[in-house]
Simulated assay, not measured.
Amino acid sequence: MNRKMQHPPFLILSLSFLSIFSPPLISSQSPPPPPQSPSTACKSTLYPKLCRSILTTFPSSSSSPYEYSKFSVKQCLKQAKRLSKVIDYHLTHRNQLSKMTHEEFGALQDCHEFMELNVDYFETVSSELKAAESMSDVLVERVTSLLSGVVTNQQTCYDGLVQAKSSIVGALSVPLSNITQLYSVSLALVTHSLEKNLKKNSKRKKGSPDQGTSTRGVIHEPLETLIKVP
């Protein structure tokens, strides 16, 4: 005769206790936010058409304001390096130097310094954005100040060439204009994403203040006056 399996009352009670107080196997974390379309992200910029053309090349499906801003900074860094090389070419080739006046040469030297400074700024911003999820107000202000300084440096470069009546103003006018618009798009995307991160992390305990990064050349002006297209 087969005997039925009987569990001691203590074992039944123990299993019931574990089933109540054991953590669930399925994670209770909230799902990630849905991807954001380029059209939505670009509403915060002054040049939405240019912005959309940039973000449509974004290689990831996990689109978010934060990822878009990092991508735009990388694109700006590439363009800043290219522009610096173009200006360096005019400063180092004799066939170009022979056609320059003293004022034009000086303006071009200043312009090259501004472009090198912009490269440094974008590299710093790219590094800072890696910590954007836990950014403080101090770090947000630093990043936006650096990007504002980039736009200011770009405009100062162009104004100097115009004042010196440089012969290369015509050749650089369109590239400078396009790159200035690109910089302004990146500034808007970064500012928007950092503001969202700050709101999301507003309830978290603030860490110790970070040491400031040098912002030599940065001019603090309203955004409307910084974004000027030649």
Results as ranks from 00 to 15, higher is better:
F122S: 08
Q6D: 04
P31L: 03
S19M: 04
Y47C: 10
K4C: 06
I219R: 12
K228I: 11
F114G: 12
K43W: 04
S62Q: 13
V150Q: 03
G207R: 04
V190P: 01
L182T: 02
T213H: 13
R94V: 03
S53F: 05
M1A: 04
K85I: 00
L139E: 15
N95D: 13
D210V: 02
R142A: 13
P34L: 14
V174Q: 10
L226K: 09
Y68R: 01
G217Q: 02
V174M: 11
T152S: 09
K206C: 03
S186I: 02
T40I: 09
S69M: 09
T152V: 13
I168V: 03
L11N: 06
F21L: 06
F58I: 09
T101L: 09
K205M: 10
K70D: 05
R204P: 00
A80I: 01
V169N: 02
L83G: 03
M115Q: 09
T215P: 11
S37D: 07
P32M: 01
F122G: 06
E128Q: 14
C51M: 01
L223E: 15
L11Q: 12
R204L: 10
G106F: 05
S19W: 03
E128R: 11
Y66W: 02
I168E: 05
L108N: 03
H93D: 04
Y47V: 06
Q211S: 08
H7R: 04
P23F: 08
P230C: 00
S173K: 12
H7A: 11
T156F: 13
S63R: 15
Q181V: 06
